Computed example of a mutant assay.
Amino acid sequence: MEIYLIRHTTPAIERGTCYGFSDLDLAPSFPEEAARVQQLLPQTPLTVYASPLQRCSKLARFLFGNNFTTDDRLKELNFGDWEMKRWDDLGPDALQAWMDNYVYARVPGGESYEDLYKRSVEIFREVITKQQNAALVTHSGVIRSLLAYVTNTPLENSFELRVEYGRMARISVQADGRLELLGVNE
């Protein structure tokens, strides 16, 4: 069994803006980026799950038609009060306090990276129990946390795992339940 973790394409937002739960549209490069992902997908049927945020559901629709299910657990980190604010405008003290303990510290009005990790792993385990090849069209935080889970990387070190727009990771689920990372940023 294989699971494909697909990150949405480039969003239409100014660099340096904090977003997670915000429902952003996609940049004009969407058709080219989406076509590139499409070429990498297997010809075998996949059970598809997507974040309900349009940057993921649009890509899922492009790749799989309407043959996908949305799930809130696949949303990006909830940045709460920081959503749609410029990182530079958050203030150095607030940002540093979070950065010093981002795994466990919740963003004001939002969630922690550990919260994201728990919900991501929960749906990932459910997908595995169905024993069908699957694709998850989601966000970098979800993918990074699942890659940490698969590779036994501590969450504190998981930001070293690069996850690019419009790319995917492949995971093999062995018959004995072992998880093997086959590729990243394909």
Results as ranks from 00 to 15, higher is better:
G141V: 00
Q96S: 10
E126H: 08
D93W: 06
V48C: 09
R106M: 07
V173A: 11
W82K: 00
P45Q: 15
N133S: 10
G177V: 08
L147N: 14
R73G: 12
Q131E: 12
W87C: 05
L136W: 09
F64W: 13
Q132T: 11
Y49C: 15
N101T: 07
E164R: 14
E122M: 09
T69L: 08
V142F: 15
V173Y: 06
L41I: 04
R167K: 15
Y104F: 03
Y113G: 01
P45H: 11
V107P: 00
V103K: 01
V173L: 11
Y165M: 10
E156D: 09
N152H: 13
D71V: 12
T69D: 07
Q43W: 05
S172C: 13
S145E: 14
Y102K: 05
K130H: 03
C56L: 07
A94Q: 13
A169P: 06
R73D: 08
E164T: 06
D93H: 02
M168H: 09
T151K: 11
T44V: 14
L53E: 06
K118A: 01
R178D: 03
I123H: 04
I123Q: 02
R144D: 14
N157L: 08
W98P: 06
F79R: 00
S172Y: 12
R125F: 10
P52N: 14
T153A: 12
G65S: 11
N152P: 05
H139C: 06
E114F: 05
M84H: 02
V137S: 06
D115L: 03
P52D: 15
P42Q: 14
D100K: 06
K118R: 02
L179C: 05
T153Q: 15
E114Y: 06
L116F: 00
S51V: 12
A105I: 00
R86S: 07
S57D: 08
L179D: 03
Q43Y: 15
L41N: 15
G109C: 04
H139K: 05
T153G: 09
T44C: 04
F79L: 05
L147Q: 15
Y117V: 00
R61G: 04
L161A: 02
P52Y: 10
P52M: 05
L136I: 09
E111S: 04
D176V: 00
Q54R: 13
A135Q: 12
E156W: 08
S51D: 13
L63T: 09
A105R: 04
F79K: 00
E160F: 03
P154L: 10
Q96C: 13
N101C: 04
P92M: 02
A50Y: 11
F79G: 00
K130G: 03
N133Y: 04
S112K: 06
L63M: 09
E156M: 07
R167A: 15
E76V: 05
F64T: 10
N66P: 02
Y104L: 01
Y49F: 15
F64Y: 12
R73T: 14
E111M: 05
Q132V: 03
E114W: 00
N66M: 11
R55Y: 06
E83F: 07
K85W: 00
S120R: 08
F79Y: 10
N152K: 15
I123N: 01
K75Y: 07
E164Q: 13
D176Y: 04
A134N: 10
R125M: 04
A60N: 13
M168Y: 13
P108N: 01
G65K: 12
S158N: 04
T151W: 02
S112E: 03
K118M: 04
T44Y: 14
Q174L: 14
K85C: 05
S140E: 08
E111D: 01
N157Q: 14
F64D: 10
G109V: 00
